[in-house]
């Protein structure tokens, strides 16, 4: 798959001297949903803002659809829709007018049918003539998305789309992103919520202190997450794992007081029953059993801690 957004050696140092991005490299594939995970101040918004042209890069290049975002900004920005983190809207404007404005601003010809389609998709059609100040926070968020979709972008950036949004609306939002994927739109979203990344992303990138620590397919990460460990405490420490048990990939703990077995909890056969039978056959007595699963949150927290 070709990269629709390509970030190369991107640095951004603000005037205050704060290094928001350090040599960031990231390729975003066409049609994928990429979740950008990171704690506050990690550089998520700076990265998005630089791609979208709001922040000027200190060095490095960004291309969107092959167009440099600085030198060839028109062609690059035409492809991009941006939904900012803050609910920035003019209070006295009506929903439909502000969405029409966005379409015109991006140089697209008038197309009321498209505007209607977008508003209906986001359940805003009934509110089209309402003043924005009359809307709830979740509705305002939808208006921002409608504005970003009004000019038919190929790449959509969602900066914390579900921050402060109730569960039901969050699900709706995920549905919208899913529908967009079906129509071939590439989506990049930043989030604090790991479940969100799990629920909709194809790939997950973890950013911390301006560095991209990890970019991985979600299913590969999930596979790592799907691995569970069982720890069997023995009443008497052993020096060696008996042959029949070692065959199953069981390892001895360092002091020999326990056995550790890794398995895929989602597999049809985990091999646990057979292992327990073998333990009995070998005459090993156990005192305790515990299982452990590393989830995305743990991977994330671990990464963040290691690099803190």
């Amino acid at each position: 798959m070709p990269a629709i957004v390509s970030v190369k050696d991107l640095n951004k140092t603000y005037k205050s001297g704060f290094e928001a991005l350090r040599k960031v490299n990231l390729d975003i594939e066409e049609g994928e949903i990429l979740a950008l995970l990171g704690p506050n101040g990690a550089g998520k918004t700076t990265l998005i803002s630089t791609i979208c042209g709001i922040v000027m890069p200190s060095s490095g290049t960004v291309t969107v659809g092959g167009h440099d975002v600085v030198r060839d900004f028109r062609a690059a920005r035409e492809l991009i829709g941006l939904v900012p983190q803050e609910l920035t809207l003019e209070a006295f404007e009506t929903v439909i007018n502000t969405v029409r404005f966005s379409r015109g601003l991006f140089g697209k010809p008038k197309d009321e049918a498209h505007i209607e389609k977008v508003l209906r998709q986001l359940s805003l059609w009934d509110k089209r003539d309402s003043k924005i100040m009359m809307l709830s926070g979740g509705m305002k968020r939808r208006v921002l998305i409608a504005k970003a979709l009004s000019h038919e972008p190929r790449v959509l950036f969602l900066d914390e789309p579900t921050a402060g949004v109730d569960v039901e609306l969050r699900k709706d939002m995920w549905q919208v992103v899913d529908d967009l994927r079906a129509s071939g739109v590439t989506t990049i979203l930043t989030t604090h919520y790991i479940e969100e990344a799990e629920a909709i992303a194809d790939r997950i990138a973890v950013i911390l202190k301006g560095d991209i620590l990890l970019v991985e397919r979600k299913d590969e990460l999930m596979e790592r997450m799907g691995k569970k460990q069982i720890r069997i405490e023995l009443s008497h420490p052993i020096k060696e794992v008996p042959e029949s048990i070692a065959q199953r990939g069981v390892q001895r703990s360092e002091d020999g007081s326990a056995l550790i077995y890794s398995y895929d909890s989602r597999a049809e056969r985990t091999g646990i029953t057979a292992l327990l039978n073998d333990l009995q056959a070998e005459g090993l007595q156990m005192t305790d059993l515990s299982t452990h699963q590393s989830n995305l949150e743990e991977i994330f927290v671990g990464l963040v801690k290691d690099n803190a």
């Binding site: 709001i54 900004f73 028109r74 690059a76 920005r77 941006l82 920035t88 003019e90 601003l105 991006f106």
Partner: peptide, 18 residues
């Protein structure tokens, strides 16, 4: 000034306009 103040300036800055 108003778009700067309420933040809607982001849209103009990210639009394909000079």
């Amino acid at each position: 000034y108003f778009p700067k103040f309420v933040g809607t300036i982001y849209e103009v800055l990210s639009a394909p306009v000079n």
